[in-house]
Structures are given as structure tokens and as C-alpha cells.
Design a protein around this nucleic acid. Structure first.
Lengths: 216, 216
DNA sequence: TAAATATCGCTATTGACATACCGATATAAA
DNA sequence: TTTATATCGGTATGTCAATAGCGATATTTA
């Protein structure tokens, strides 16, 4: 029973756990930088303000055996979580739609931590095509299939206006993309096997404004 | 039993429902623009690709009585959802941290739909203070408490580097802010009564990269 | 060497949301 | 006027994640 956990994980990680992993990872990195060799789930929980039991379960799911009274081996835990997130290998992405938001993402330096690099950008406007923004060349939409295949890109980022969202998704899927990071407000229809992750600012703002409006 | 629903809602709306409301609202707006006077939950569900039962329950929670075989009265449903989201009154917000992401948000035109306007921006860098970005003046951090009080702002947007996130939150809370839209990766510690909504790109990317890395 | 203790790891319970089912009713057609 | 039907409204069930509790074990200390 115990060995199975270490060798192969037959069960999938819960999505909420995966969403918390980047937070843990940042905390673990800080502790390693501070010279720690072992990570205690209780310490992590306290630093992050989380329930100790939750942190313990999340860290345990990484599959690294921990030792009582010491915690988890820091380097191994860090490597396991990084691998679970798919951040150990560098990932090439393409970005479609170089408006203000797309431009901001091109200039965002935080993606280095996730080994993510935006290899190419695309836009429909001839006024932007050909320019280089934050070191990334902007190509015409016609070049998308060819470049996606050449760069072996599996991840596409959509930062176009809502009206163009679905057609962009279709082009990316046709080009062989496996995951879409969707910054538009439209629900994208994609075939099975293609993962869509939505970053809808309106949804996020909804919870906030509902709460501070004070009517409930 | 039925009357209670219309007058006062003793139960809170589920957060997932609130998060879906902007999507419904956009769909309803489109249908009204197309001349519809009644909104059927089944039609909405099909247009959005959602489970019909889920859409029916969500729309029912708005508190507007619907009629069998017709659906919900379009204008009333639109008004009720808009009110539930707190988007009927215009909201003033302040933005802290005019980097690439902050700048993108200042230039984002989509907030009109939510009656949200960014009234002032703040930054610590003297190179940016005093400039006007997308029609919004950038003030020094020292002016934050005074301006927040004068503008009666309840919502603060944090787009600073991670290291400065907590201190910004503290300043906003001290100035009387009630809700924080947090675009940094740090978990903000705030007193009870202050709502924080996180837009952590790393968390969102985590689910994507885990899925397309293919190890599960 | 032996006892005390902190931490891991497993199992059970709780709670919330999504889903399924069924009755009630207003509209439309015959 | 009567029947058929589509949609709303409420109740019940299932599923998944968060929480709680408890036993196992390695380290520390006396």
C-alpha cells in the first residue's frame, strides 16, 4: 500500500490541490533559500495561513515519503511538485491577440519561474504584424499553423476581443494545440482532449462586487 | 414560501452561481438586443453549453418568478442579476502598481459593462508618478489614504510585484477599502470584513501545464 | 536505554455543489 | 372547451473536497 504511492500514482491529483501547488512551491523555494533541508507541513501551513491538515494532505499527494519529526526532504519535495505541475520541462507557448492585455503578458517576467516562454505572437491587424514586442515577433494569423508545428507548441494563449475568441480557438486546435489559456469572456467550444483554462476577469470581479455591495 | 423569495432572500447565493452570473448576463443582454422579451433557461443553457438543470437553478436564484412555457421576463431577470452582482451602481476603484499589467487594466475597456471605473492609480516609482495613463492620473503612494477617502472608494486593485503586495494591502485596508482584487501571487492577510479575490496567473497556468504535460 | 513528543499517513465524517427526478402550471393547439 | 406539452419549482441523491480524529513511527532527551 505504501509502496504504490511512491512508484506509480494510480489516482489523479485533485484540481484544487494542483491549484495550490504553486503557492506551496513558492514557500518551499523560500525555505530552501533560507537553508532548510526538510519541509514540515505544519510550518508551511502556518506561513501560508492554511489549515495544517490541508497542507499535510496536499504535500503527501506529491508522493515523496516524509519522516516524522523532520518533515519532507526539501529538494525531493520541490522536484516532485515542480514535476507534477509540468514545470520541470520548458514549455513553448504562442499568444494570439497583441492588444493591451496580450502585450502585458508578453512583458510579464514571472513566467520564467514556470519555465514558460512565449515563442511567437500573432495578430490580425497589419499595423502590429511585423513588429517585435518585448522581444517577441508578431506574425500574421496565416502563419499560425506552420509556426505552431515548427515550434512543437502545445499551449496557446488567447487575448483577443470576445468576438474573435472562438475562431482563434478553432485555429489553434486545428494547428494541434493541446491546451488553451483563455483570457476572453466567451466559453470556448473545443473537442475532447483539448484543455481550456479560463481567466475571466468579469467572473472574478463578480464575487468581489457582489460581496462589497452588501446585499445578501 | 414563494413570497419570501421575492421580498428578501434569507439565504446567500452560492459562490459558483455568482461566478456564472456574468456569463448568463452577457447571454441575456444578447437575447434582449435580439428582441426577446422572455428568457428560457433551456435556451440559455444551450447557447452557453451548460447543463439545462444548472442554468435553471442559477436563474431561479435571482428571485424573479418565471412562467411555464414562456421563461423569465427578460428585463426583470437582467435587472435582478445585475443587482445581485452589484453592477447596477457605478463603482469607483483605485489601482496600485502601474507596471505592464496595471497599465493593461487601466486601458481595458471591458469594465464599462460592470459599471466599474478606475478613478485613480498609484505607484511608488517617481518616474511614473505624475503621468496620465489611459486617462487616469498616477499619484504617489502618500496620497492614497486621502484620495481613497475623498473618492469613497471601496475597491482596490493590486498589480505590484509580489514583494510589495502585502504592504499595499495593508495601506488599502488602513484607508478603508472593503474589497481587494489581488493580481499578485502572494496570499494577502487582511482583517475580517475585507474581501480578497485573487487572480493568480500561476494557479491558473498550473492546471493547464499539469494537464498537457500528460503525467497523470 | 527508555520515555516523551512531534509529525506523518490513513480512515471517517461533514458539507457544499452538481445532478437527477417529479409534480405543478400556464400556454398553445385541437 | 379540452387536451397536450414545455417550462418552472421543489425534493432527493450522488460526488468531491475539506475537516476531524486516531494510530504509527522516528527523533530527541533524560
Amino acid at each position: 500500500m505504501n509502496e504504490k504511492n511512491q512508484l506509480a500514482r494510480p489516482f489523479a491529483l485533485p484540481v484544487p490541490t494542483i491549484r495550490r501547488y504553486p503557492v506551496y512551491l513558492r514557500c518551499i523555494n523560500e525555505m530552501i533559500a533560507a537553508g532548510e533541508t526538510h519541509i514540515s507541513s505544519a510550518v508551511v501551513a502556518e506561513r501560508l495561513g492554511l489549515d495544517p491538515v490541508l497542507a499535510r494532505k496536499d504535500l503527501a499527494m506529491a508522493g515523496v515519503p516524509g519522516k516524522p519529526r523532520r518533515g519532507y526532504p526539501a529538494a525531493e519535495l520541490q522536484a516532485a511538485i515542480t514535476a507534477a505541475l509540468g514545470w520541470d520541462d520548458s514549455t513553448n507557448a504562442v499568444l494570439v491577440g497583441v492588444g493591451s492585455l496580450g502585450n502585458a503578458l508578453l512583458g510579464y517576467s514571472g513566467f520564467k519561474e514556470q519555465n514558460l516562454s512565449i515563442a511567437a505572437a500573432f495578430d490580425a491587424s497589419p499595423r502590429i504584424v511585423g513588429r517585435t514586442m518585448h522581444g517577441v515577433r508578431v506574425h500574421p494569423m496565416e502563419d499560425l499553423p506552420r509556426l505552431v508545428k515548427r515550434l512543437k507548441t502545445r499551449l496557446g494563449i488567447i487575448t483577443v476581443p470576445n468576438a474573435a475568441g472562438q475562431s482563434c480557438a478553432d485555429r489553434l486546435v486545428a494547428a494541434g494545440i493541446r491546451g488553451i489559456w483563455n483570457f476572453t469572456s466567451v466559453r470556448l467550444a473545443v473537442p475532447d482532449g483539448v484543455i481550456v483554462q479560463n481567466v475571466d476577469l468579469a467572473q472574478s470581479l463578480a464575487v468581489l462586487s457582489h460581496a462589497i455591495s452588501g446585499r445578501h
